[in-house]
Amino acid sequence: MTTNLYVHNDKFIAGITMKDEAEFEHNNMALHACTNPDYIVENRKKLATSLQCELSDFVCANQTHSANFHRVTLEDKGRGATQMETAIADTDALYTYEPNIVLCSFTADCVPVIFYNEVKGLIGVIHSGWQGTVKEITLKLFEHLAQVEQCNPSDFHVQIGAALSQEKFEVDEDVYAKFKNLGYADEFMYHNNLTRKYHIDNQLTVKRQCELAGIPAEQIVMDRTCTYVESAGFSYREDRKCGRHLSFVVRKGD
């Protein structure tokens, strides 16, 4: 099983699963975009084993490109792990203080954001496709964590995972206008006069949102793997029937 581990220390494990020809459905992790759900469950079980936990420790959401987030409690443990019906509804970001819970986010071109806060023992994942980015889900969640959960933004460490590159993320004027209206994304966009398309760097826009929330730039790391170009990437732009990567984070506890 191919997995990019971003963080692996005595307190936190975080990473993203990648496409792997040797696994069921090429290591697809998504129940909402698969041929055989049983294969997806098997792939997830294999990931759980590699993380030295159980699949029942996973928590998944039904992602809808919203700006909605959810604080995961012990009662949520196992939601969406083996069937879509139990997933947390209409939610694109999860966070928790609970140890030994694996928070999951699914992407194929969209930007996955993984974060942890050692001081608070808090972890989280965000699914930020372009719609989530223009709705500022990342900025809104970190503002919530600062105001409601009393987190100091400078205590966060953020990993921005593999996503569609600026070169491959071409859009028409309607999407460009939405990014333009953010007021801070201009330097992450350019216009191709030949194709009359705009190209947007969604990863850098999300990184800017983290910075606007007060997170130090040196504590934000980006994986610039393009999901369209790289053979280990699932790309919805390339193939509408593709699988999904699973971004994950867990805080180890006793």
Rank of each mutant, 00 (worst) to 15 (best):
E23R: 15
T107Q: 15
C53F: 07
E167I: 09
V221M: 10
H191V: 01
A14N: 06
N152D: 14
E238S: 12
S56W: 08
F58E: 12
K168Y: 10
E136T: 07
A22I: 10
P112H: 03
L122D: 00
S154V: 08
E230Y: 15
G214C: 09
C104Q: 14
G124W: 00
T49P: 14
A30T: 01
S154K: 15
I16R: 07
E98T: 01
N68R: 13
H191Y: 15
E21T: 07
E23L: 12
T195E: 11
K252H: 14
N68P: 11
E173V: 05
F169H: 14
I160H: 04
E42I: 09
V148E: 10
V7S: 00
N152R: 14
V229A: 12
Y116G: 00
K207H: 06
F69S: 11
A232N: 15
T91I: 10
N181P: 01
M1C: 03
F248R: 15
S247T: 06
E143M: 09
D172Y: 07
N181L: 02
S105H: 14
S128D: 01
K46E: 07
K207Q: 14
Q131D: 09
V148A: 03
E118P: 12
A232I: 06
A93C: 15
F188E: 04
I16Q: 10
E54F: 12
R237H: 13
F169P: 01
C210Y: 12
M189Q: 08
F24Q: 13
V41K: 15
N192E: 09
H127L: 12
A87F: 07
H245A: 00
I88L: 08
I40A: 06
T86K: 12
T227R: 14
H157Y: 15
L204F: 10
Y6C: 08
D20S: 02
P216F: 02
W130A: 00
L212Y: 04
L103A: 05
F188T: 00
S66Y: 08
S247C: 10
T133W: 05
C53I: 09
A48K: 13
R71C: 05
G161W: 00
